[in-house]
Design a protein around this nucleic acid. Structure first.
Length: 167
DNA sequence: GCCAACGTTGGC
DNA sequence: GCCAACGTTGGC
């Protein structure tokens, strides 16, 4: 066993998309323990990030997609690392996947706990205009991944914008 | 393995 | 509602 003085890496940052008509930051903040299963992700790249990369204590932006306007709505933290998404096995669930075998689950999820609802939604047009965010995964042409990494510098910029007093 | 057809995402 | 872009499926 090797010794490490400080942790090799501090927590990382992510962005999770959700359609607020289905599940919003307000739903998260009013959930029991402000905690929710991030279920229903049916994309392999997003699944791999949840299964392999997201760790307890990592921070996530909650992003409202298909909203008016779309934007970053708040902050949550990962409180349970990747584990099987049971909704894939429920025929009545809209995300049911008949090809997923419970013995070797295809789809994974994490649990997140809401930490903060932004005073001001950081809307997509503002993200596009903000210096320092040009390389954000979210803003790349054709990018539609529902679980994305966020750079530390991007995190700081967006968190500061979200914490501005509401008008 | 190629690739056309189809389904989904998500901004506008 | 439209449509660009992407991912998946399935015939060959």
């Amino acid at each position: 066993m090797t010794t490490k003085k400080a942790s090799a890496r501090s927590h990382r940052y992510w962005l999770l998309k959700t359609e607020p008509e289905s599940f919003s930051i307000d739903d998260l903040m009013s959930a029991p323990k402000r905690t929710a299963h991030w279920d229903g992700v049916r994309n392999y790249q997003a699944r791999n990030l949840m299964r392999d990369e997201m760790k307890g204590g990592d921070l996530v932006f909650i992003y409202h997609s298909s909203a008016s306007p779309p934007g970053v709505a708040g902050i949550a933290e990962v409180v349970r690392e990747g584990y099987p998404d049971g909704s894939a096995f429920d025929p009545k669930d809209s995300h049911f996947d008949a090809k997923s075998d419970p013995a070797t689950p295809t789809w994974m999820m994490v649990d997140v706990r809401g930490l903060e609802r932004f005073a001001t939604l950081v809307a997509l047009p503002e993200l596009r205009e903000t210096k320092g965010l040009e390389k954000m995964v979210l803003l790349q042409k054709g990018s539609r991944l529902s679980v994305q990494p966020v750079r530390a510098a991007e995190w700081e910029i967006i968190a500061a914008l979200g914490r501005r007093a509401a008008r």
